[in-house]
Design a protein around this nucleic acid. Structure first.
Lengths: 137, 137
DNA sequence: ATAATTCCTCTAGCAACTAGAGGTTCAAGA
DNA sequence: TCTTGAACCTCTAGTTGCTAGAGGAATTAT
């Protein structure tokens, strides 16, 4: 049995966050000692690792909860898990595209200002002037 | 003079958000009509456009506030604006790198599961199994 | 036995808004 | 001029995913 701190070390999830997940229903309330401290078993450890990894992949807690309820599911239900993963993949690809546009624009802005700062910096100007953008956002 | 709704249409910033910015001190409190409604001038419009554009570029409100106080600054202070822009650029590049790693991994996960769902879906397995990742996060 | 560490609950805070309740003012048409 | 409907007002609370702190109890090591 693990104390909450052990669980935290093994998973890299901070102690208050573990309690937060319990509050949110992502982790079932564990057993307690006579002194009211939480004690976790292997299943809880694995569940928390699943959550951790999914969070690292960018999934919102709601999606993770959905995945967790699919554990041990068969047939049709597994497609749901697949869909969640694909949706997340699309989301990430969209984010990458948008960030690349921003990168272009910021790079342009900072370069415009690299040498001299005469009177009015191009950075300040560029931040205010949407029309000067190459792309659209 | 613009009513808050006009300002909203012209900038694409929603009405409650404009009031929120005022609360936060990013927009100075505008004049009011006899009936207590906000009326904005050109300067407010431009300031809000600056905020909007900067937000689109991913700057947090704190940085935008810093930039706004630099308006009309000279010499040394302009370097601060430049630094904020460069910091943001680095941040965005880092985010792109991280997202690309996630994209790889998610793509791998979904493909592993594309055909058959026998008993246990590879998606669920992969989400739980950090060791199976290519990269590290 | 005592001290250090970890644990408990609870509240409040962060970013950056969004939504709703309940009520007032403005602008345009009859 | 009156009326109606849209837009406005303030205020509170909710969102997501945590994090920090207060004040106190339990566990662990010496």
């Amino acid at each position: 049995m693990y104390a909450i701190g052990d669980l935290s070390h093994r998973t890299g999830v901070k102690v208050p966050t573990i309690r937060f997940y319990e509050d949110r229903g992502l982790l079932p309330p564990p057993e307690r000692t006579a002194g009211n401290q939480r004690r976790y078993d292997e299943a809880a450890l694995q569940r928390l690792q699943f959550i951790r990894h999914s969070r690292d992949l960018g999934l919102p807690l709601a999606d993770i909860e959905a995945l967790l309820t699919l554990e041990g599911a068969k047939g049709q239900d597994l497609n749901q898990a697949h869909e969640i993963a694909e949706r997340q993949l699309e989301d990430i690809r969209g984010r990458i595209t948008r960030l690349k546009r921003l990168e272009q624009e910021l790079a342009r802005i900072t370069q415009a200002c690299d040498g001299q700062h005469d009177h009015v910096c191009a950075v300040l100007h560029a931040f205010g002037d949407h029309d000067a953008c190459d792309g659209s956002h």
